[in-house]
Amino acid sequence: MTGEPSPRPADDFEGVADLYFAEIRRYGAKRLGPDAAADVAAQTFLEAFRQRRRYNPERGSVRTWLYGIATKVVGRHHRSESRALRMYARLSPDRDAEEHTERVDARVSAEGLRGELGAAIAALPRGQRDVLLLVALADLSHQEVATALGISYGTVGSRLNRARTRLRKALGGTNPMLTLEEQHG
C-alpha cells in the first residue's frame, strides 16, 4: 500500500481500526463465511490492541501485522473454514442436486469443479492454506506473508508451490477455470 503512512498502533490504535477494520472483516468473511466475519474482525483487533506496543515497524507494515493476527484467529476456527468453502461451492447450484439435473452439461460441470476446488482448498494443510490465501485474498507479497506468519521467505515459496500442485492435482491436472473460460468465451 502506498500513500499516507499508517497510524502507529501504540499511538493511534483508533486510527488503525478506522483504516483496516473493513478490510480485515472482509478477509474474515471470505475465510470463514459471513456469520463469523464480525467475530474474526473483533478478535483480530482486540488481540492487536493487546499487542500494540509490540508492533515493530521495521518488521513490516501495520497491514501485514494485522493479517498475521487475523490468520491466527481464523486458525482457531478450523471447522468453520471447511463449512464456508462448501457453502461457496453451493453458491452456484450443486451438480448433485436433483433439481438441477436439467441444466446444461457445461454449466453443471463448472459447478462441480467449484465444489472440487473448494474441497481441495479445505484439504490443504493449514500452513499451505494460510500462505495461499494471504497471497490470493490479501494480495500480500511473499516477503509480507513471511512476516505475517513468522516463517522464512523460502518457506513461503515452497508452501505456495505445494499448495498449487495439490490444487492442480485435485482438479485433474488441468486448469479447469481456464478451460471453461475458453469454452464460454
Binding site: 490465501l133 497471497v135 490470493a136
Partner: peptide, 18 residues
Amino acid sequence: MDEVQMVREYYPEPAAAP
C-alpha cells in the same frame, strides 16, 4: 490464469459490515 487467480475468484465478495 493460475491457481492463485482461480482461488481468488472462488471466494465471493462479502457484504459490507453493518
